[in-house]
Design a protein around this nucleic acid. Structure first.
Lengths: 145, 145
DNA sequence: CTAGTTGCAAAAGATTTGCAGACGT
DNA sequence: ACGTCTGCAAATCTTTTGCAACTAG
């Protein structure tokens, strides 16, 4: 992602915005809460306020640069939103309820079927969110082992 | 729903719990926020605190009597959880981004495909949440009319 | 220059919790 | 009577906002 992307989105190219974008791109994890981004940047010595992180992420979301998700825990609701860079096309998520790892997937059949379901009820679809919750292979091994 | 259901769930049959259950059953709308339940009961002259409504709903959720959902608005995240009585079997939701009406649906093909997707990645599924967002027939008419 | 941005602190909104009194069994 | 539950107020957590200072173009 380059500074031109920010300009294109109608946002000034500022240090905090660049740092946040850079972090989202270079992190191995694709999903981060505002707070985890804030802390990570703080640890790198960046002086970026938490409020700015929220503001920037919200702006990015509105410009379509990032997506916001509200995942749930096992039965417990996690209160923090998580954000991911919107580089790939649309996809859904599988969240491990044990280690909270997030995987992505895309399934043409499910996508198509969703459209049919909505159309059958006369809805004009604007979006959808599908999240599977389960125990990932690694955690299953841990439990049984 | 009868008081025996509360007992069965290991909860004392108290006035607030009964009132809240009764409200959820008798309302034409199936989805309510804690606050809307609180206000509705207040209007009926019930002296039930908001904290109690939250506590009771959380207990009900843990006992499987109700389900909690976190829907999003158009692009905006709605901060309030909504609760619904868990009488029917599993189902997913279509939310109108314009009038916020909630419809339910169940699609065997989507359900099956989700299991396959998870299985293919070695996950043991514990749950899932699928919500479609769109504009309902009534709102579409309003816009075009 | 000047409109858009930032940091801080304070505010706001949703939900939870401590505690003393009230209630169900 | 006893343990559970409730109401209130205060606390907590996440996110937003006001405002004065700063900065990119």
């Amino acid at each position: 992602m380059k500074s031109s992307d920010l300009k294109k989105a109608g946002l000034k190219v500022t240090l905090p915005r660049m740092k946040i974008l850079k972090f989202l791109e270079e992190s191995t994890e694709r999903h981060h809460s505002a707070e985890s981004i804030y802390k990570a940047l703080s640890n790198e010595g960046e002086e970026i306020g938490l409020a700015t992180v929220y503001r920037v992420l919200t702006q990015f979301e509105n410009k379509g640069l990032v997506e916001r998700h509200r995942f749930e825990g096992d039965n417990q609701v996690s209160n923090q939103s998580v954000f991911e860079l919107n580089v790939k096309g649309h996809h859904d998520h599988i969240v491990c309820v044990s280690c909270h790892k997030v995987e992505e997937f895309y399934d043409e059949m499910i996508e198509a079927r969703q459209k049919e379901v909505a159309a059958a009820r006369g809805y004009e679809v604007t979006g959808h969110s599908l999240t599977l919750y389960g125990i990932c292979p690694a955690c299953r091994k841990k439990k049984s082992g």
